[in-house]
Design a protein around this nucleic acid. Structure first.
Ligand SMILES: [Mn+2]
Ligand SMILES: [Mn+2]
Ligand SMILES: [Zn+2]
Ligand SMILES: [Zn+2]
Lengths: 137, 137
DNA sequence: TTATAAAATTAGAATTAATCTAAATTGAAA
DNA sequence: TTTCAATTTAGATTAATTCTAATTTTATAA
């Protein structure tokens, strides 16, 4: 809780109660939750919470670089507290979105001379081991 | 035109006039167009065309693997006729979505043992050279 | 403390990409 | 021609996100 306040303050974000709760939720739930997941879960302990606040707050966090937005889904954005270098795998069967190790920073590329690159994402898709195991072939 | 029909037939897709036009449009416009871009452009030469047909057809193409859907945008899907190994860069300033060279296939990763991977995407974001050049700093 | 201004939050309306639905059209057999 | 499945269609529906304008909270100054 205290670390969350420090992190917000360090990033020039005033640590309001909602901002603390939302960042805390992301820190403690590494499932890459959607806006609605965050909203519905926090609403229980804070019935006055508005969806707009969750949207506003997450935009603020993304701008400050303390959380990362994931656009691997077609329709809705997911949010990741882990901004370290790692890839994301989406199982097309069960929908689960998992992390995997990949060295994106060292990835060699060409054709972006004189571009400023602020963000790199690696998205894989397929079927996870669990879903493959369940399949009676 | 003829090659398009051959490509569709090879993938067990009956080459209806709309399917031909849509695939032709993707082949000739490598700007990663959205559904609406495709729809509005083709509607001129084919006023009866429906949005639903564009959606249906693109889903069909994606399933067959002859076009690739890009989810680099938050809100809408873009489509790429080029299914070869390459990365995508989105300029946050002008919105342009460009290709770049990157060897995704040879990318080393860990943590997806016994997963079936059907698709790999590399998305970079930032500011393109053109936008950087325009900026009077 | 009290007054004032700025920042944060709110509910609900508006927007819009994508999906769904049920009817109409087309095209290939029989 | 008749029949049946595949394709296409317009418009309704869904749902994530954004917008708006009002309200509440917090900070600052007198
Ligand atoms: Mn992650
Ligand atoms: Mn491309
Ligand atoms: Zn799975
Ligand atoms: Zn640009």
């Amino acid at each position: 809780m205290n670390e969350i306040i420090i992190e917000l303050t360090k990033n020039n974000i005033k640590p309001s109660i909602h901002r603390i709760k939302i960042l805390e939720y992301l820190r403690d739930n590494r499932t890459h939750p959607t806006v609605d997941e965050i909203y519905l879960n926090l609403k229980e302990g804070c019935p006055t919470l508005s969806r707009a606040t969750v949207y506003n707050t997450l935009s603020l966090f993304v701008q400050s670089g303390i959380v990362r937005p994931l656009t691997i889904e077609d329709r809705e954005i997911r949010y990741d507290y882990n901004t370290e270098d790692h890839g994301h795998f989406k199982c097309e069967q069960c929908g689960f979105l998992s992390d995997f190790e990949v060295n994106v920073a060292q990835l060699k590329y060409e054709g972006l001379e004189h571009h400023e690159i602020t963000n790199k994402d690696v998205y894989f898709r397929g079927v996870c081991n669990k879903c493959l195991g369940n399949k009676k072939s």
